[in-house]
Design a binder for these strands. Structure first.
Length: 284
DNA sequence: GCTAACACCTGCGTGC
DNA sequence: TGCACGCAGGTGTTAG
């Protein structure tokens, strides 16, 4: 499931293989991957053909290729999206949705099993950020990320700390995996009320978010199956380092208590019941 | 304005 | 063997 480190691995691959190339043809195999491009494939294809890719950029889990002119090809990988660089004659993978033929004879292929991701063309602002993601907050690996502003906004919220971490308008790039890992490291229970968090706890939480994502990035991201891969189709190794996420019943690496799984926001939360006790007045 | 619930979507694993 | 169902979860929309 691509979160910030996985998306950054893909961005680096695009930076190496796609920047400087020109799109010579576009094939849309499944229009559902263009559901955020409201004018549809009939508009998407001719607008993209002939465009040169000037840069590969990212904010949180959003990824975009800056095109010549004031436009970008914006992409979100959703839960199962992949951006693969392939030779044009390589066999088409299952769930191939969109293909960009490049001027070096290779293809940029968008593969997405569950179709939660997609592509769209968008205008960019003066900082070359697509205007359609103007509401997405900066991510904690962004040099311009403002820690004080984040802490201020977090403590104004009236919700649980994990719910806030997953809110991309407050802080971007954090998904279920890294939220659970960061909270385990502090340690904090996911239901701790944001308004009761102490400044030191917010500070520690941010430090751990940055650390856990940095470590994941060094290991090429997290992979539980073949769904997350870099542009060359290779998986990362960070799943071998997870302390809490997906470890139900396994001993907590800190105290040995079995990790517990709770239903949370139609998904799962993993905590150590001893290190991360449930708060009395928690918010879910 | 803020928060929470829900729909979207497919493949895999499990139980019957 | 085949079917039904639950689960995985990021984002946008809608309701309160």
């Amino acid at each position: 499931m691509p979160e910030l480190p996985e998306v950054e691995v893909v961005r680096r691959g695009l930076d190496a293989h796609v920047v400087g190339r020109t799109v010579v043809a576009v094939t849309v195999h499944d229009v559902r991957s263009l559901k955020r491009h409201l004018p549809g494939a009939a508009d998407f294809v001719p607008r993209l053909v002939g465009r040169r890719v000037d840069a590969a950029r990212r904010r949180g889990k959003y990824l975009w290729l800056v095109l010549d002119g004031h436009e970008a090809l914006l992409c979100h990988l959703g839960m199962s999206g992949q951006m693969l660089i392939s030779d044009a004659d390589a066999p088409a993978p299952r769930h191939l949705r969109i293909v960009l033929d490049l001027d070096d004879g290779r293809q940029l292929r968008f593969v997405d099993q569950r179709i939660f991701g997609g592509m769209m063309l968008a205008d960019v602002d003066d900082e070359q950020v697509p205007v359609t993601i103007g509401h997405i907050a900066r991510d904690p690996l962004d040099p311009a990320f403002d820690r004080d502003l984040f802490a201020q906004r977090l403590r104004r919220r009236r919700t649980g700390v994990k719910r806030a971490l997953l809110d991309q308008t407050l802080i971007s790039g954090v998904g279920n995996i890294y939220a659970d890992e960061s909270l385990w490291r502090v340690p904090l229970h996911y239901a701790r009320a944001t308004e009761n968090l102490r400044a030191k706890e917010v500070d520690a939480l941010l430090d751990h978010v940055v650390d856990v994502m940095g470590e994941a990035l060094e290991q090429g991201g997290t992979s539980f199956d073949a769904l997350y891969v870099n542009v060359n189709g290779q998986s990362g190794y960070f799943d071998r380092s997870l302390a809490a996420y997906g470890q139900e019943g396994e001993p907590c690496p800190r105290c040995g208590t079995p990790i517990r799984r709770d239903a949370f926001m139609n998904r799962s939360s993993f905590t150590c019941p001893r290190c991360q006790p449930r708060p009395r007045n928690g918010r879910f």
